[in-house]
Design a protein around this nucleic acid. Structure first.
Lengths: 225, 225
DNA sequence: TTTAATTTTTAGATTTGTCTAAAATAATTT
DNA sequence: AAATTATTTTAGACAAATCTAAAAATTAAA
């Protein structure tokens, strides 16, 4: 299905919103996209025409099977490009989103297949979000708090709940980033500090406040870096 | 200067055409872009408004300094992406143009700077065309026929004048591609055959007909592969 | 349950890029 | 130089995506 850049942006946004609510409504989508309810209403008609949307006027809407399939293709492209920008070009993981927003609309399937191969078929992007595979299935990865990770079991840092500059500085200091392999060696009851081991780094001890904000996958199948 | 995708395509095309003729005219640009003279005429007005064009109605036109600068930025992006697609993703060099046409419109300067670094600051693209640098200066590389390359002097294959499928098969057979380092060891007067050495390949002998279609740079500063 | 507030949709404009057809200008021929 | 031909530009329309303002439908409140 040929989609305009604009249609792709709407589809992706609806996908994101409908993960959180049963029915998506016009205003929330307008808010999310920084546009007007009128524009959304116009686009919904188009997407319904293309049979990508379950949509009753004055009611609410959701992507149908076909719509979800399209959304996952776009999200796959977006996240693969983010991996490229961070792991190959060395860009900061918090600065790649805007560029990936543009790259995601380049839609050659061959390009995306080869990019995926080249990147080693990664399963999560630099923000810790899962990358749908070619067929559109999303790897379901259980995210748990680092504080809940069993001792000496390998985890992969999947997300950080506090993304302030101060927190980023701390994580940088310890060389902890999304995708880092991490293992808990010891926990101190006194203040919740954890002694952890990051791959290719000497063991270090992080405070309870830091640890609380780190989430990991307990899955070994994730590509690490 | 913010330019639409369409404006960028026009600018790039005008740049290409004005390298060949003194004044570019409406019809030839329309032909080149597979569009109508009316559309071209419309766009010319816009580009003149943006002060990228020297343009007198009913006369002819050319990019001015500012226009050329924009064109070189676009061409730089295009050619860097082509290098990426071929040398990193392993795509065929005759199939990357269409994809690069899309990627070239992603305009983050930081992205392009890092991509350039990542690719090792290449000087030519997979078609043998020079890649403008960040400041917009185009490496001037003298292209000579392989048959004119001095004995035992290194050349870099820059272009192939006959791009038929049959020729491609021959070049593939000998592992000769754009960017290949090549050296002439011996020339046979009988039929113009040349014994040549391609880097990391045993020496081989190519016919005069093949040799005639191969062009090289006699410059050592080109990155090879 | 009638009114008020909110949400959603339509109506009508605007912008960008395109087109066809016709008019204007330039170049060639006779 | 007048007529013909070719080229270029304008005029007017259209499609996509957007907007503002007003109308319609729904929901909440009095």
């Amino acid at each position: 299905m040929k989609l305009s850049e604009s249609e792709e942006n709407y589809i992706k946004s609806i996908y994101t919103l409908q993960a959180k609510t049963e029915k998506v409504n016009t205003n929330s989508l307008a808010d999310y996209l920084n546009t007007t309810a009128a524009s959304v209403s116009d686009m919904l008609k188009k997407l319904k025409m293309k049979r990508l949307l379950e949509y009753k006027r004055y009611y609410g809407f959701r992507l149908n099977e076909a719509g979800i399939k399209e959304a996952l293709k776009i999200i796959r492209r977006h996240r693969l490009w983010e991996v490229f920008l961070v792991s190959k070009l060395g860009m900061e993981w918090d600065k790649v989103h805007a560029i990936a927003e543009e790259l995601e609309h380049v839609s050659s399937p061959d390009l995306i297949r080869k990019l995926d191969q080249y990147l080693g078929q990664p399963k999560i992007d630099p923000h810790g979000d899962p990358i749908p595979d070619e067929k559109g299935s999303v790897p379901e990865l259980k995210q748990i708090a680092l504080t809940d990770l069993s001792f000496k079991k390998n985890g992969v840092v999947s997300s950080v709940s506090n993304q302030t500059n101060e927190m980023m500085k701390m994580l940088n200091h310890y060389s902890i980033g999304i995708g880092s392999q991490i293992k808990v060696l010891k926990a101190f009851e006194f203040d919740g500090s954890l002694q952890v081991k990051i791959s290719r780094q000497p063991a270090c001890t992080i405070s309870g406040q830091v640890a609380q904000n780190i989430f990991v996958y307990d899955d070994k199948k994730i590509g690490t870096r």
